[in-house]
Simulated assay, not measured.
Amino acid sequence: MTTSTIRKKDDRLFDILNLIFLTVVGLTVLYPLYFVVIASFSNPDAVNSGEMWLFPKDITFEGYNRIFQDSRIWIGYLNTVKYTLVGTLVNVLLTVMGAYALSRKDLYGRNVVMLFFIFTMFFSGGLIPTYLLVKDLGMLNSMWALILPKAVALFNLIVTRTFFQTTLPDELLEAAKMDGCSDFRFFFNFALPLSKPIIAVIGLYYGVSHWNSYFDALIYLNREAAYPLQLILRNILIQSQISAQMLGGGIEGLAAQQRIAELIKYGVIIVASFPLLIVYPFLQRYFVQGVMIGSVKG
């Protein structure tokens, strides 16, 4: 038996073990998502008793009907889309511009500036001082209270700066300057077009963060008309649970209300996650490229 034959058998064994391992990991990740989907339109009694674990049972869409009949859902969707689009645009613009400036070796004092940024990773003013600052700036009950205090995430700034340092060679900038290209023109005509992978990655990070955020809205907003979707769904879920606990219609009425609360619980997860599941496949190609930034240099 030759060495190449032994190596082929070892490679085949490795591939089989790797496939088994990845299959187990994939099922471990995907099954909870699948369970939530089928539980959202299955009989809650079958879900709670463990009878439903692979296929939906006694299909009912009562939970979704209750959710979408609430006009607050559509208001929350509209607000969340607005906050996500505007917030992500502001986040990406400031992060890319800041990262590009910090990646330039000719920026005087860039290490000191970076040190101030890194300092914020370990120390912050806290919730109360931040709230007072937002209040003094007159941003309460506005979308800017949800966007500007977190306009730049330091992790994304560092990753983007690393991207510029490893992707834009100094020779390219020197050649552009020799042709009379200004710094602003180089940034918009060269740096940005070459930054599609990292823009997609940080845009996805920021977008998911804005879409899933509800705590900032809970702190800074007190008008229900301005609530994002996540806060609306949280209130609906809490209200359904409270009404199930306080219902005075007897045991049968209480059981029925609890069934609806269970349907709503799974339904709101799907309603909140569905838009992101649609967007992600279109950004996956750039996302895979972007997350590899910094892993290979040279």
Rank of each mutant, 00 (worst) to 15 (best):
T5A: 13
K8Q: 12
I16L: 14
L17W: 14
N18Y: 13
L19V: 11
I20Q: 04
L22Y: 14
V24I: 11
V24M: 12
L30W: 12
Y34G: 04
S40L: 11
S42F: 02
N43V: 00
D45W: 06
A46M: 08
S49W: 03
M52W: 05
F55K: 11
P56A: 03
K57F: 01
K57A: 04
I59Y: 02
F61D: 06
E62G: 04
E62A: 07
R66F: 15
R66G: 01
I67S: 04
F68D: 11
I75S: 12
G76E: 06
L78F: 14
N79Y: 12
T80D: 05
V81A: 04
T88F: 02
V90T: 09
L94A: 14
L94K: 11
V96K: 10
G98H: 05
Y100E: 09
Y100D: 02
A101V: 08
R104V: 05
Y108S: 06
G109H: 04
R110T: 00
V112C: 01
V112A: 02
F117N: 02
I118M: 13
M121E: 01
M121I: 05
F123E: 07
I128F: 09
P129H: 06
D136E: 15
L137G: 09
G138W: 06
M139D: 01
N141K: 09
W144R: 06
W144F: 14
W144D: 02
A145E: 06
A145Q: 14
I147H: 07
